[in-house]
Amino acid sequence: MKISEIFFLLLALIIIPIVSGCKNDENTPVGDKGTVTFNIANEVGGSPLQMGSLNYTNAAGNNYQVDLLKYYVSNFTLIKDDNTEYTIGNHDLIDAADPASANIIAKDVPNGTYTKLRFILGIDSVYNHTGDQAGDLDPINGMIWSWNTGYIFFKHEGVYKDSLQQTKGLLYHYGTDKARTTIELTMQPLIISGNSKKVNLAFDLNSLYNTPNQLDFNVNNVHQSTSPGDVIWIQKLRTNFSQAFSFKSVE
């Protein structure tokens, strides 16, 4: 063997492993994981939410309008019948004015059959107490209190007609650790086998204001979760949130 041949052989032996060592490990076998897209439809009384008109009435008889509706959903967890779970550590801001925000994407969901879904309305305590964060938790989204560090879990701003049929402002800013709500839904079996699936969910604003606790905007049309007097209001909504989301279908 010539020296040049030895040289190229050594070169190949040494360089090839080094160069391939530069690659990221993306070699997990294709097929044992799938992608799930959760979509949350914002509804009122079962119909798609329309913003900017006074065309909704809650059980307390308040005529109301939605000009802004935003909320955080986080820590989506898929559960199998044997109670094994897969959690995505997401923090997603749903904005009723932005349809793209309604999709929550879970990549790398292990194959299997999932029959339950659990998530949080709000932000878990690890992430709830600092504004120094990015993405959907970036304070620029206007969903954080600066005088009391914590995310506004749910915001409804609009107007309603009071008992004298006068139009008044409506401002519900719901949050604090007391307000975090765990939501658990039973699904029709979601079967993942290396494929992509879509899970359709719905959030019903009238359900939030009606079931099981009736909220009456005449009692107080401005709540900012900032005084001990807001605690009962938080407790009522917290109970109602656990029923305001529903499972629709798997596609």
Binding site: H129, T130, G131, D132, P139, I140, G142, I144, W145, S146, W147, N148, T149
Partner: peptide, 27 residues
């Protein structure tokens, strides 16, 4: 703050900026 509302120095920064009675701006 006097009431401990801001949990850390980082989070505190935006409160005076946003407060309508102080620097009154938007992020």
């Amino acid at each position: 703050f006097w009431d401990g509302g801001a949990t850390n120095l980082e989070s505190q920064v935006i409160a005076p900026i946003l407060n309508p009675l102080e620097m009154h701006d938007l992020l």
